[in-house]
Design a protein around this nucleic acid. Structure first.
Length: 245
DNA sequence: CACCAGGCCGTGC
DNA sequence: GCACGGCATGGT
């Protein structure tokens, strides 16, 4: 049983909108996609890849659940959570926006960037701007939109965006280091980028929620304990702890 | 009025 | 190397 809602709206992507009645939509690839179940993705080549349908998430969840009682609890009750294969640039900006912020406001900023710098794709909706579309952006404009102290970070990301492709070839540690050369990108944001757009499953983002999980349930452990399912375990634990409070 | 949000930067030690 | 305050903005 898939938990497509948690996968799309749970904080790994800020592209998707809740259309009601179990439907979700996003502007990706210069068009509007709509899905209500994972089956909707199977017949579309772009979505097949985006939803990572070739990976056995059921098998991975079973392995995670068998590791300890906390992971058992975190994985049961909720449906299957996937790790999306998103665009590097979109995820870079999304998670620069995410620092000291909440999911609702991040989504709002994502929309305002799209309206201001992206282009219309019909139905009153806009694409997320590509690097070239954001080239002329000024700090003042970005602050008007509400990005606040993150505005200069976005400008630096525009400058350094050309290195995003090279990161694909790097070992995990080198990739982490390279991403953190961008202003506003620290270890947490870098690992989110590597998981959600480079399919690096050894990433283990430590945000305020995960610090709480580690403090309360894994006081003497670190990310390596969850190997080889660091990223997916983290996603289940993140979803679980947030649903607790 | 506080305090918080999928943190990071700059400074000081 | 690590600890600490500051940070734009909107919600509770």
């Amino acid at each position: 049983m898939e938990n497509i809602r948690e996968t799309l709206l749970g904080g790994q992507s800020f592209s998707w909108r809740d259309d009601g009645d179990g439907w979700y939509s996003a502007v990706l690839n210069d068009r509007i996609y709509r899905v209500s179940s994972i089956e909707d993705a199977a017949s579309d080549p772009f979505l097949y890849d985006y939803f990572d349908l070739s990976y056995d998430y059921e098998k991975a969840r079973e392995a995670i659940a068998a590791k300890d009682d906390i992971l058992r609890r975190a994985t049961e009750g909720t449906g299957l959570i996937r790790l999306l294969k998103q665009d590097h640039w979109i995820v870079l900006i999304s998670f620069i926006l995410s620092q000291n912020n909440n999911i609702k406001r991040i989504t709002g900023l994502y929309d305002r960037l799209s309206r201001r710098y992206g282009h219309p794709v019909g139905e009153g909706r806009f694409s997320f701007p590509c690097v070239d579309e954001m080239k002329g952006a000024s700090e003042e404009e970005l602050r008007e939109i509400g990005t606040g102290f993150r505005a200069p970070f976005i400008l630096d990301a525009i400058d350094k965006a050309s290195m995003l492709d090279e990161i694909e070839e790097m070992p995990f540690a080198d990739a982490m280091e390279a991403l953190q050369r961008i202003k506003g990108v620290g270890p947490k944001v870098a690992s989110c980028i590597l998981i959600f757009s480079y399919q690096r499953r050894e990433g283990f983002p430590m945000d305020v929620w995960m610090k709480k999980v580690m403090r309360e349930y894994y006081p003497d452990k670190d990310a390596s304990y969850f190997h080889p399912y660091e990223a997916l375990s983290q996603q289940y634990l993140f979803s679980w702890i947030r649903s607790q409070s």
